[in-house]
Each structure stands twice: as C-alpha cells, then as structure tokens.
Amino acid sequence: MDMTLDMNRKGSLAIHCVTNGPIQTNTYFAVSDDEVVVIDPAWEGERLAEVLADRCPGKRVAAIICTHGHADHIGGVAGMRRALGSDVPFLISEADSEIMGRAIEDMREMWGFDHELPPVPDRLLSEGDVVAFGDVELQVVATPGHTPGGIVLFCAAATGNVAFVGDTLFPGAHGRTDLEGGSEKQIIDSLGKIGALLPADTLCLIGHNDTTTIERELESNLFMRRGLRHYR
C-alpha cells in the first residue's frame, strides 16, 4: 500500500443527502464554512440546484465532483452547471472522463433512461490529489473495479472522518463489475485498500441506500476481508 493519507483532523463538515434519479442515487452536498461541494449529481441538475439553494443558502459552490462516470452519477452535472454558472468546476478522474458518453448510451439501451452528457471536466483527479474547500480537504483515493477510474473522497475533519465511496462499497458488498471497465479483482483489491487505509471510525457515504462504517465492513464484508490479504 503505497498511498498515505493526512489523518490530522481539521475543520468542520456538514453533509446533506438528496436521493434522486431513476435508480435512487445519493447526491451529497458537503458543506464547510461558507463553501459547498456537490458530489455525484445524478439527475435533473436544475432541480438539484434549487434544492442546494434551499438546503445551503448563501454558500459558494466550490466544485461538482463525481466519484465515477456512470450515468446515474453524472446525469445532473450539465443541468447544475447551467443553473450555477460555468465558473463552477467539474471534477472527475481521467479514466472515467473517457467512459461518460458510453455509460449514458449503455443506460439508455439497458433501462431506457436518458441523461445529458456533462461538459468537459475542468480538472482530472488522480490518487493523492486534494480538493480543498471551506476549512477541510477531500483526499482522493483511486478505487478501480466498479469503473476503471472510480475514486473515494476521504475527509479527516474535526467533526469526524468521512468517505464518499460512490459505488465501490455497499454494506456487506460492493458495486457491480459486469459493466464496461468493471473488474471483480480490482474491486476486491480496492475494498482491501480502503479497509487498510481509512480509519475504522470513518463514516462511509454510499452511492445508493444506507451508510456504513469501515469498522462495520471490516467485521462483516467478506469481500473487504478478502481484499485485505493484499495489505497485511
């Protein structure tokens, strides 16, 4: 395990979750001081922008970040940018920036849902990158497997350790690996990686359904325990 994280807790982080889109994706508004970052806007970006204004009045939107490039996590980016302004940067990993168009086509073909293609990303994220806003930092951890460029965003805040895990981790399980660029081996390795890297008390904010913690997953997630063998 080559990567290290800054575990020094600093700043405060408040989180709002909005479940939206055709397959119930969790969009997160991460608020620190006078700024907010939107994570995984799934659907109807203009409406999400209205919810954001209601939940986080007066906060400056520092960035829109997607944990991966599947249509149900990027579908609201374009609409939010129209509503919020083109000066709000859109961030995603380089590998997943390349699959966004195909992912939208795949969802249209499989389930009949259509999404608008996001604009060209303003910043391509890699492992070890940091996104600073308010008085906190999101640290980027590469977690391929669900998609080639999936990422986890970890924040060591004074208010508690938090990780936005997208579809890499589900309680007791992991995201599907049968779509383009998916890999069962890679996602098992990624689960082991975050299990070894993140503090046990880290609150994991999932792309769909309920939250969990690293401690809980270390006890009950057989996929994570299998992946941990690589880091011991």
Rank of each mutant, 00 (worst) to 15 (best):
L125T: 03
S86M: 04
V130Y: 06
D122Q: 07
T147A: 14
W111C: 13
A156D: 03
G128E: 03
V136D: 01
R123H: 11
G150E: 09
D114L: 07
L138V: 09
V130L: 10
F154R: 02
I104Q: 04
V130D: 09
L91A: 14
G150T: 00
G150I: 00
S97H: 03
T159W: 13
M100W: 08
T159Q: 05
V152D: 05
D129R: 04
R123P: 14
H146F: 15
N161W: 02
I99T: 15
S86G: 07
G145A: 12
V136A: 10
I92G: 10
A156R: 01
V140D: 01
I104R: 10
F154C: 04
L153G: 14
L153K: 05
I92V: 04
D135E: 10
S86A: 13
R102H: 15
S126W: 03
R108H: 13
G150L: 00
V88S: 09
I99Q: 05
A157S: 13
F164P: 02
C155P: 01
A142E: 06
R123Y: 10
L125K: 00
M100A: 11
F113E: 14
E116N: 08
E105Q: 09
M110V: 14
D87S: 15
F90L: 04
A103Y: 06
N161T: 06
T147V: 05
V141F: 01
D114Q: 07
S93H: 03
A158W: 13
G166N: 11
M110F: 12
G149K: 04
G128Y: 03
E127M: 07
H115F: 11
P144G: 02
E116Y: 03
V88G: 13
P118T: 06
I151T: 11
E109V: 07
W111E: 15
D96Y: 06
V131R: 01
A142G: 15
E116F: 01
D129C: 00
A157V: 05
I151Q: 13
G160P: 11
V120Y: 04
T143I: 05
T147S: 10
A142Q: 11
D135Q: 04
R123T: 11
D114S: 14
F90P: 01
L124D: 03
V131Y: 05
V130T: 12
E109P: 13
A132G: 14
P118Y: 09
L91F: 12
R123C: 14
F133A: 07
N161V: 13
F164V: 02
D106W: 14
G160T: 02
Q139F: 04
L91I: 06
V152C: 08
C155F: 08
V165S: 10
P121Y: 00
F113C: 08
T147G: 15
A132L: 01
L124P: 12
V165K: 08
S93D: 04
S86F: 13
E109Q: 15
L124E: 06
S86V: 09
V120C: 10
E109C: 02
